[in-house]
């Protein structure tokens, strides 16, 4: 027998039609190349608010796999340089990729062996360009982020950037579920920059911690363990508190709830 496949011939074109050369092409498809994916392991909201001397932001430690609470030790507030915090929600594998990109950026920043020059305004601009480039390749990084910190002139920076390349700035920002649940609570205290300038650090922390509690009550993809960062202008310092828990929750009223309408024992 002749063992050369090329000598075996093909089914006759009269019967089967001409060979479709697209089959052999790497991207055998009638569709455009699809790189867009879906988030797999995800992190929920990040929330942030300005106060008179800085910014407070928080994000919980859960990595969800659909509705499965798969990882409970995910750190989603990333320090970048000595004056920036990036809070990330969305896909965790992309979060880790962003972490690597920002680490490379910090290494490059340290080449001159001076103090870190990388400031939040730079990090935000860079991140938003990365996001926009990736979404333009139809291969987005599936995240919403909040960049907060002290700028080169020691002014407060609080900005948002997401998978579409959308950016904006506001004295109160929240991603994901937080945009629905936390923003109304945050804006009740801080609607404008002027409001922010009247809020003390203690009030801001209290406000954010309350939002995290409400999010735990109402966001089915959240847990009660979270990290909270306090950026202070006067101290020129960032403190990250890890492993905080939702406190002062109210559940006792549950005992008064019986049935779902008609009186029930």
């Amino acid at each position: 027998m002749n063992h050369g496949p090329y000598d075996w011939g093909r089914p006759s074109d009269d019967t089967y039609g001409a060979y479709n050369h697209q089959i052999a092409a790497a991207n055998n498809s009638q569709f455009p190349k699809m790189n867009t994916q879906q988030p797999i392991v995800t992190g929920t909201s990040v929330i942030a608010v300005k106060y008179q001397d800085g910014i407070v932001l928080a994000a919980d430690n859960l990595g969800s796999y659909g509705s499965l609470a798969r990882f409970s030790d995910i750190e989603r507030l990333l320090p970048v340089g000595d004056s920036t915090i990036v809070g990330i929600s969305g896909d965790i594998s992309d979060l880790q990729q962003i972490e690597r990109i920002l680490d490379d950026l910090q290494v490059q920043d340290s080449y001159d062996m001076e103090k870190p020059n990388l400031k939040p305004e730079h990090v935000h601009e860079y991140l938003s360009r990365v996001f926009y480039n990736r979404r333009s390749k139809m291969d987005p990084l599936w995240n919403s982020t909040i960049v907060a910190g002290l700028s080169s002139t020691n002014e407060l920076v609080l900005k948002y950037a997401d998978l579409l390349g959308v950016t904006y700035s506001s004295p109160a920002i929240a991603t994901g579920f937080g945009a629905h649940l936390a923003i109304p609570l945050l804006r009740r205290k801080v609607e404008t920059e002027e409001d922010a300038s009247k809020l003390t650090e203690e009030e801001a922390v209290e406000l954010v911690r309350n939002c995290m509690k409400v999010l735990f009550y109402r966001d089915a993809r959240s847990i009660d363990k979270y990290s909270l960062a306090v950026i202070s202008q006067s101290r020129k310092k960032i403190d990250i508190h890890k492993g905080l828990r939702c406190e002062d929750m109210k559940w006792e009223f549950a005992k008064h709830i019986r049935g779902y309408g008609a009186p029930q024992l």
Partner: peptide, 8 residues
């Protein structure tokens, strides 16, 4: 390393 390619 679950699908998606994160690492834990």
């Amino acid at each position: 390393i679950p699908i998606g390619g994160s690492i834990h």
